[in-house]
């Protein structure tokens, strides 16, 4: 498997506190990988080790196939990183900062002249690039943080809470930006508290709690991690007992409840069988108005995972 990020037994201690405990993490190339966990779970510590701001106490870290050792600039050449609430030198202008960072990535003058205005436009800072960063709002600094993370055409973009401090419109823009990065073939490693954000943009998710990875899989499989199968709720145009009976005969259905026009279908499987359910209902004369998963959001899985006691944890 072609991995953009791989950690094996990653451990980081701060005197008495073990922030990350033997973390095994695999982030596939060209995926948008969500990194979820409550406050203090070890997300930022892990990311800081990946980008060389912290030293691992134990374990192996590989980024884009290279083993990360302390102060390895060649590893960072293809990595863009946006920290949580990024802070930049207040005395520099937005454009000056991107120009200097571009030089650090070895971009030529021509490349900088083309790339920087494009990035400023993408993050919505066009027209404000000549202002001192000290005059930028938090949201503008956040946007600048995203722009600098995309400099130098990175293969891997690590974003730590990119939507923090942004207004709802900007949050949508950032989400679209992340989707765009994925389309361009970049790997995006996204740490976020916002489960709906992760749900909307990520193809894979790792849930970390107290420094331990509780689950790591595709978003679909993570959603299906609740014990047993899923539950599908169907709204019919009018009550239809034949439809309920038809569903009960399906091999992957364990239970069907009817309450007026609403059918609640409990499944034995984690597979997406909504097409079979639809066919069974319409075949028995029922008219479907709406159908959707019930109780299988990422939030449900996340809450269930982090409420479990961690093995060997405090």
């Amino acid at each position: 498997m072609d991995l953009a990020v791989e950690t094996v037994g990653l451990t980081k201690r701060y005197s008495q506190l073990t922030a990350v405990k033997g973390l095994n993490l695999e982030v596939r190339r060209n995926s948008v990988h969500g990194f979820l966990g409550p406050n203090g779970a070890g997300k930022t510590t892990t990311i800081k080790i990946l980008v060389g701001l912290l030293r691992a106490d134990e374990g192996v870290v590989r980024v884009l196939g290279r083993e990360v050792r302390w102060d390895a600039p060649e590893t960072r050449l293809k990595v863009g990183y946006m920290p949580e609430l990024p802070r930049f030198p207040r005395h520099l202008k937005g454009r000056e900062l991107l120009d200097i960072y571009g030089r650090m990535y070895g971009m030529s003058e021509q490349q900088r002249r083309e790339e920087i205005p494009r990035l400023l436009e993408v993050v919505g800072l066009k027209g404000r690039e000549g202002d001192l960063i000290g005059k930028y709002s938090k949201g503008m600094q956040q946007r600048l943080g995203i722009a600098q993370a995309l400099l130098g055409d990175p293969e891997l973009v690590i974003l730590d809470e990119p939507s923090l401090g942004l207004d709802p419109v900007s949050m949508v823009e950032v989400r679209n930006l992340m989707k765009g990065m994925a389309k361009e073939g970049r790997t995006v490693f996204l740490s976020s508290h916002l489960l709906f954000e992760v749900e909307q943009v990520c193809s894979h998710v790792t849930v970390i709690h107290r420094g331990v990875a509780l689950a790591s899989d595709t978003l679909q499989n993570i959603r299906g991690m609740l014990m047993g199968g899923g539950v599908v709720e169907v709204e019919l145009a009018e009550p239809c007992e034949a439809a309920a009976e038809s569903l009960r005969s399906l091999p992957f259905v364990s239970r069907v409840e009817q309450s007026g026009r609403i059918l609640t279908v409990e499944l034995k499987t984690r597979d997406d069988v909504r097409a079979h359910i639809s066919r069974a209902i319409t075949g028995s004369g029922g008219v479907i108005v709406a159908m959707g998963w019930k109780g299988r959001t990422l939030e449900d899985v996340f809450l269930q995972l982090v409420s479990k006691p961690v093995e060997g944890g405090a």
């Binding site: 980008v51 060389g52 701001l53 600039p73 060649e74 960072r76 050449l77 990595v79 990183y81 920290p83 990024p86 802070r87 930049f88 030198p89 207040r90 960072y101 650090m104 990535y105 070895g106 943080g145 600098q148 130098g152």
Partner: peptide, 11 residues
């Protein structure tokens, strides 16, 4: 100032 975070993660 926290600017080390971005500076030290450049190549």
């Amino acid at each position: 100032g926290g600017t080390a975070v971005t500076l030290l993660t450049k190549p």
